[in-house]
Design a protein around this nucleic acid. Structure first.
Lengths: 189, 189
DNA sequence: TTGCCCATGTAATTCGTTACATGATTTC
DNA sequence: GAAATCATGTAACGAATTACATGGGCAA
């Protein structure tokens, strides 16, 4: 996955809104964009360091609470420019990998009931995600007029909604086909 | 992306069907599973070497044509076992990354028309993918009774169909919302 | 006093991409 | 004679995960 580090833009994008610490950034990601992007500390802290070296952000020690030293990062002008550049650049078509589909593709090697179980699991996690997304949607629609940010957030939430709905529809269709298959095999006996 | 090399299972899965060369494997991937998995030569050849070292596959020189030395790989018994093990192991929920959504999320920074253009592009590639998928579906349904493999292939194709349909639906919805937004801004003037 | 949350980081490892390198054969 | 296809690989690099390491404050 070389080519262009995208996590840096997640960080720049978040900092563009307000100064944050590495820890905050992680929390923000978990809160709002985790279903289409994520990043661990092992990536956030080194990336912040790198952004610092490039002059795209600045740090200051902030000891709001009596806790451990807290470093707050602020985006610079050239950081804003870099963010802008990325936002305006064309996005390549995404290549997506689904391990589950891979297993299905080679699926004739294992028991049909195993597939049914794993599809059921897939459906149930999709359902949970969908419910969470729909909650986001409801809340966002209330605050839609407050700022443009909410509007764009809503667009990504709608994407998630369509995506998880599609997952669930597929899971139902695939389950039906597999169940039919089992039945027709039993009839053969 | 460490943890567990999944490309090895793609290779094992393909070899489980018939012996192939590295070049063949690439072609097979491009033909059938490219929309949910891909791999370049830079990964296929080293992985084959690794599988060989682990005794999961064997090679033989095959000079069917008068061309360059062609190496044909065959899966071994322990290779089959390893494939089986992976197939039966539970699949973790996939984390998927969409750069496009990231850009939308931070989207208030750039012109709305730019977003409209990139969504239109997204829609059009999705449309092309969907058409290709529907062609696969049609062909597969003709040969469905021939072997179990076709049935499982169909399940993955149906997934792709639902996925790309969802992409298109979202693109339409998002475009409408953006267009409305532009209009309401113009009214403000 | 146990455990959770706040808070920062490093090191090892490995997956995956890109570019490079080579060369024969077939097709137009 | 040029271009496409068949065919195999390596090297460099970078992104991302995982595990490890440390430590204070607060609440039950």
């Amino acid at each position: 996955m070389p080519k262009e580090n995208k996590t840096r833009y997640v960080i720049l994008g978040l900092l563009n809104h307000q100064p944050l610490s590495g820890y905050d950034i992680k929390k923000r990601i978990e809160m709002s964009i985790t279903y289409f992007w994520d990043a661990g500390y092992g990536q956030i802290y080194p990336t912040l360091k790198q952004l610092l070296n490039e002059g795209l952000v600045t740090v200051r020690e902030a000891e709001n609470t009596g806790r451990t030293a807290r470093k707050e990062y602020t985006i610079t002008e050239s950081g804003k420019k870099e963010l802008q550049r990325w936002l305006s650049a064309p996005t390549e078509p995404e290549t997506i990998r689904y391990e589950m589909l891979l297993k299905l593709f080679f699926g004739s090697q294992i028991k049909t009931k195993q597939h049914l179980a794993s599809i059921a699991k897939f459906r149930s996690t999709s359902q949970i995600n969908l419910q969470r997304i729909e909650l986001y949607e409801k809340n966002l629609k209330k605050h839609l007029t407050e700022s443009d940010d909410h509007f764009f957030y809503l667009l990504t939430v709608l994407f998630g909604k369509h995506l998880f709905q599609a997952y669930i529809q597929w899971a139902d269709e695939a389950s039906d086909l597999l169940a039919e298959k089992i039945k027709s095999k039993e009839r053969e006996k």
